[in-house]
Design a protein around this nucleic acid. Structure first.
Lengths: 333, 333
DNA sequence: AAAACTAACTTAATCGGTTACGGAAAAGCG
DNA sequence: CGCTTTTCCGTAACCGATTAAGTTAGTTTT
């Protein structure tokens, strides 16, 4: 690999001159700068990130925590869209992204150690088990960090407006005349809590009495579970007229499984998804589209801010989504 | 950040001793090794990847080319599954993965330059415009590389068995009595070429005469296009009885759009997808599941082999998939 | 024309490890 | 008890950059 040393030799200058010439420092004459530039080009030279990082203590590399305990992860359109937009923004800012893991040289390690090892300039937590001590250790370290859809005290966060999401969905259903609205929510997480807040508060505001049998815990992205719970809801003496699902994916799966069963009871009531994945839009499902792109982009901006100004306060931003009106919520008298 | 120097001072040994102790070299006594280990642990020490890479010329980092010109990319389940399994395997082998791009410090650069800059030990090409000169430059460089679903002369490759895929699908349709089989294929790429081979050869073997109106070029992952072409096929004087789509995604989208139109003509013939995405399986679509997991895993193995033995010959592997029997291919008399 | 700048480099230290080589002390051997 | 091996650790060069500080020649100032 050709290094500055060889360029220096070739141009009869010192390595320092080469470095400064290529870095566009001012104390190099235009003539030598050009000579060096040309030599570098001709010799196929490229800067060495490791060497630079060693000296400058900056890697221009961002660590991405994206661990899918449930094998959702990349297969989850919402998260992969966030990752994609984050990545794009990072590249714009001149950063690369590397996945964080907790295996070092084959052995088990910690996320923090991995970040120290790679010397990431910053870290973004997109998907993870947010309550794990390893994550806490990471966000409490002095590495600039930003978390998505979760709030920590010591780092910036960007979260989707889940409360508003449920508010809009409930309001929409209510406008269509629904009063028996069920909500299959996901595992108890920050996100779920916010959604439940939105659900309960909006019901209260609209004077909709919440039947406790209608609010049940399921799992995100789990078709089997949603299917089971939907069946359960539809077997109640007093059936709900509308069911809000944890996400579009499980809703679509559930719908098709009901049809497979030859059971049209789900088609005869109203259903609502969450996320706004492409397929849901194609299928005309009423859902709340989370603005994954904005989330990823903003998270990146916040992280870069934190990197460039480590003394800055952390900011907590909420990103709104939008209701997508499909054809799965019917008017009731 | 705590370095070996500080541990050395703390333990009254030289930096070399610390390095060797932590690297489990044999010429350090068990006593000092333990003393150093403990100090490192207590001080929260972690190795510095840049420093190590500088000296050893190994980064334990693999560059991943994953560029979605068509905004498919991560949203494409097949590719994201490959990425996921590749990543998992890489971590097992002790490698991290970083996305390759062609922007350097905000400006436009080349993929190769980026790889030189990061000094990747190897490179995997998962999604890209395979014919771009930048990619060619990359695979022709001396960086160990492996490509997925595309063959280059100078690097190993792992490809899905597209010929077999189409063979199986055509055979299956034929067994169900279909003789008028249409094939909406994707853009002309290596993959498409193999599929066409499989399609034509199998038709010939089974004495199915191919109506040239039935074999038309569409685009992968493009619902609008597939929808348009399906309509076109169904408007032919002599309609096909079975249509093979470029992929599950566009098939599912097309089906739902037909239903939206109140057009049941697609439901009355047989349809076949490709990829075997989860949703397709839930919806009972007959398709060919590509073994994305095996592809990613094998690609990683090949790459690690190439890294560890740069003189080795490149290998070209073909990974079989399997036909998933759904309910979208009906018996014809 | 001597003093004071300025422009354009060079020198050398440094970042945090790795590793070939060397050397002293302890252990093994006859 | 001498001599050869081992064992264990230190010295120092090196990887490829960056950058503060120093140097030299040319230019300006007075």
């Amino acid at each position: 690999m050709v290094s500055m040393k060889e360029i220096a030799k070739n141009c009869n200058v010192s390595v320092a001159t080469v470095s400064k010439a290529l870095a566009d420092k001012k104390d190099i004459s235009e003539a030598t700068r050009e000579k060096i530039r040309k030599a570098a080009e001709d010799m196929g030279y490229m800067l060495n990130a490791s060497a630079r990082a060693l000296k400058t203590n900056r890697t221009n590399n961002i660590g991405v925590l994206f661990v899918d305990s449930m094998s959702a992860g990349l297969a989850h359109e919402y998260f992969s869209e966030i990752l994609e937009s984050f990545r794009w923004a990072a590249e714009e800012y001149g950063y690369d992204i590397t996945f964080i893991n907790n295996r070092f040289a084959g052995m088990t390690s910690t996320y923090l150690n991995h970040c120290k090892y790679r010397n990431f300039d910053g870290v973004v937590i997109i998907v993870a088990d947010f309550s794990s001590p390893q994550i806490l250790e990471l966000v409490d370290s002095d590495i600039p960090a930003v978390s998505i859809d979760f709030n920590y005290d010591h780092c910036s966060s960007v979260v989707s407006d889940n409360t508003k999401g449920l508010r809009q969905l409930v309001k929409y259903a209510a406008e269509k005349g629904h009063r028996k609205i069920a909500f299959i929510h996901g595992e108890p997480t920050d996100v779920t809590k916010k959604r439940l807040d939105g659900f309960y508060n909006t019901c209260r505001e609209l004077n909709i009495s919440v039947n406790e049998d209608y609010v049940i815990e399921g799992r995100y992205h789990d078709i089997d579970e949603s299917y089971r719970l939907a069946k359960q809801l539809l077997s109640l003496r007093e059936k709900p007229t509308c069911i809000i699902f944890p996400d579009d994916y499980s809703l679509i799966g559930t719908i098709s499984r009901f049809r497979e069963d030859g059971d049209d009871s789900l088609d005869r009531i109203s259903v609502i998804g969450y996320d706004g994945i492409k397929m849901a839009r194609f299928m005309g499902i009423t859902t709340y589209r989370q603005d994954a792109q904005a989330l990823g982009q903003l998270a990146c901006k916040r992280l870069v801010d934190a990197i460039e100004n480590p003394e800055g306060l952390c900011e907590h931003s909420v990103v709104a989504g939008e209701l997508i009106e499909g054809r799965t919520v019917h008017e009731v008298k």
